[in-house]
Amino acid sequence: MAHTETLIDILKARINRMAFKKQDTTTLFQRGDKVEVASQEWGYIGSYYTAKIVCSIGDSHYRVRFKNLVNDDKSDLLEEIVMASEIRPMPPRHKTLLPENICLNDKVDVFDKDGWWVGFVSGRDEQSYYVYFPTTGDNVAYPLQLLRFHQEWNMGNWISSN
């Protein structure tokens, strides 16, 4: 049991470093660019939401319009001003996820609650993959089509963690 706890602690530390990491801000985005915005809100740390750039505001902020999030009265898509360090380009399509490509402890993103959440594959049954989310402590089953391999934006390049 001690070995499992140690592994979980290591995975939690990796996720926390990644979740609270500021994005590389050397990329300048243009109006209409599709991006992902890292949530900095408690309870949503470790999640990314698809958006489009509406406009830049000064040197360090952008107005974005989210693809899947709506405003409080649900009348329109949500627009917010976010720091450049919270934005990254859309990740490229990674190799197709096939059951034989996924291993225990692989870092993945799961599409849930209108965004992509970072976690680790913790198990599998006939139809689902269990993903552990260190930022929330949840371990949830998902079908394969809701998973993608996690990639990090670093110094202008995408780096695959798998």
Rank of each mutant, 00 (worst) to 15 (best):
D138M: 13
W153N: 02
A13V: 12
S160L: 09
R63N: 12
E5P: 13
Q40M: 11
M1C: 15
I87R: 02
S56E: 11
F66Y: 15
Y129H: 00
S160H: 13
A38E: 05
V54S: 03
K67T: 05
T27N: 03
M90K: 11
S85N: 09
N139T: 13
D106N: 11
G46N: 01
W158S: 05
Q30P: 02
N154F: 15
E100W: 14
D59Y: 14
G58P: 02
N154E: 15
T136S: 13
Q145W: 11
S161F: 14
N157I: 13
D138W: 07
E126Q: 13
V82W: 09
Y130R: 02
Q127L: 06
W42R: 14
R63W: 08
G137N: 03
Y62L: 13
T27E: 05
Q145D: 12
I8Y: 06
K21G: 08
K74G: 09
R65Q: 07
D112E: 10
L11S: 01
L98R: 15
W116L: 02
E5G: 12
V118R: 11
E80I: 11
N105I: 10
N68M: 06
Q40P: 04
G115N: 02
G58S: 00
M18E: 15
R31D: 00
N68C: 07
P99Y: 08
I57P: 03
E126D: 11
S85R: 13
R93V: 09
N71A: 03
E100T: 10
T26H: 07
L144I: 13
S161Y: 08
Q30D: 07
L146M: 12
V70S: 14
M90N: 03
E126I: 03
E126F: 11
A13G: 15
Q127M: 08
Y44P: 00
S85H: 05
M83H: 14
K34F: 04
L144M: 12
